[in-house]
Amino acid sequence: MDWIPVALLTFKILVLGTGMFFAIKWHYDQGKKASEKRAVLRASGMVAAVFVLSLLAMGLVTFFLIRTFASDLSLT
């Protein structure tokens, strides 16, 4: 059962890495097409904000699920 965290962490890193690669590639391609840098910067900022918010939401959901299933999170 010790291999499960390693496998899940590896999967998570692969999924997030692939998503970030394609997001950066898409924005780079859009930047080549668009003549206005302001629109590209605004789109990049919105994507970064959505990414940070989804990361925060995933962390909160994980915390509350662990707390719900009676795992001990106290530091003492």
Rank of each mutant, 00 (worst) to 15 (best):
K25R: 13
K25S: 13
K25Y: 12
K25P: 03
W26C: 11
W26M: 13
H27K: 11
Y28T: 06
Y28I: 04
D29N: 06
D29L: 14
D29T: 14
Q30A: 15
Q30I: 15
Q30N: 06
Q30K: 13
G31D: 00
G31H: 00
G31Q: 07
K32G: 06
K33I: 12
K33E: 15
A34K: 08
A34V: 01
A34Y: 07
A34R: 07
S35H: 11
E36D: 10
K37F: 12
K37R: 06
K37T: 09
A39I: 15
A39L: 14
A39N: 11
V40H: 07
V40D: 01
L41Y: 12
L41A: 09
R42M: 03
A43K: 08
S44G: 03
S44M: 12
S44E: 01
G45A: 04
G45D: 01
M46T: 15
M46F: 12
M46K: 11
M46V: 04
M46H: 05
M46N: 10
V47Q: 10
V47G: 08
V47D: 13
A48Y: 03
A48D: 04
A48W: 06
A49M: 05
A49E: 01
A49R: 02
A49D: 06
V50S: 11
V50A: 12
V50L: 06
V50M: 08
F51T: 11
F51Y: 14
V52G: 01
V52A: 10
V52R: 03
L53W: 01
L53S: 11
L53H: 04
L53F: 01
